[in-house]
């Protein structure tokens, strides 16, 4: 199922197998560092991230790089010589994110850390905070939009 998912995304059997291998490596590494509650979604998410990174990297190579670099350079999969620039970009993004996150409500901040730091799903967050799942979904969307606009602003 995981291999089929990868194949559908990258449309190449050998690439999908490479990505599957990398997926298992990453998940094993992650498991050695922290507990993962829902392994199946985590596996799919890792595989999907790798496939999307692959597609993005291929697209970057395919077209001669144009004016606006996409957000893809946040990921470590792109060319190694971009590593230094990536680190500087990541630092700027972290600074801007921190400033913007300060403006969120305490509940939104709590939802953000539960989701991003603790890897809690919206169901778990709703349970923990005693609010409805749709409230958490709405709050998460708003927080995501804040993060995305911070990243977009930095890229221009």
């Amino acid at each position: 199922m995981l291999l089929r998912t990868l194949q559908r995304m990258v449309r190449s059997h050998s690439t999908a197998e490479d990505l599957l291998q990398e997926t298992y490596l990453r998940v094993t590494r992650a498991l050695s560092e922290r507990a993962i509650e829902h392994l199946e979604p985590f596996l799919f998410q890792t595989a999907r991230n790798l496939a999307l990174d692959h597609l993005r990297a291929r697209r970057i190579h395919a077209r001669t790089i144009v004016d606006d670099a996409p957000i893809s350079d946040i990921h470590d999969v792109v060319a190694p010589d971009a590593a230094l620039e990536d680190a500087a970009h990541a630092n700027r993004l972290l600074e801007s994110l921190s400033a913007s996150l300060e403006t969120l409500t305490p509940r939104q901040q709590k939802i953000f850390t539960l989701s991003r730091l603790h890897g809690a799903s919206y169901l778990e967050i709703a349970k923990q905070l005693g609010v409805s799942t749709s409230t958490v979904q709405k709050e998460l969307k708003l927080i995501m939009t804040v993060c995305l606009s911070v990243a977009a602003r930095l890229d221009h």
Partner: peptide, 27 residues
């Protein structure tokens, strides 16, 4: 695909994780 990739790249990025860690530590 394009829009999803752009959103996921940010949401699952290291800076976002680091920002959450910083925020939690500050609080």
């Amino acid at each position: 695909r394009e829009v999803f990739a752009s959103a996921e790249a940010v949401w699952h990025s290291q800076p976002v994780f680091d920002a959450a860690a910083l925020l939690a530590a500050r609080k």
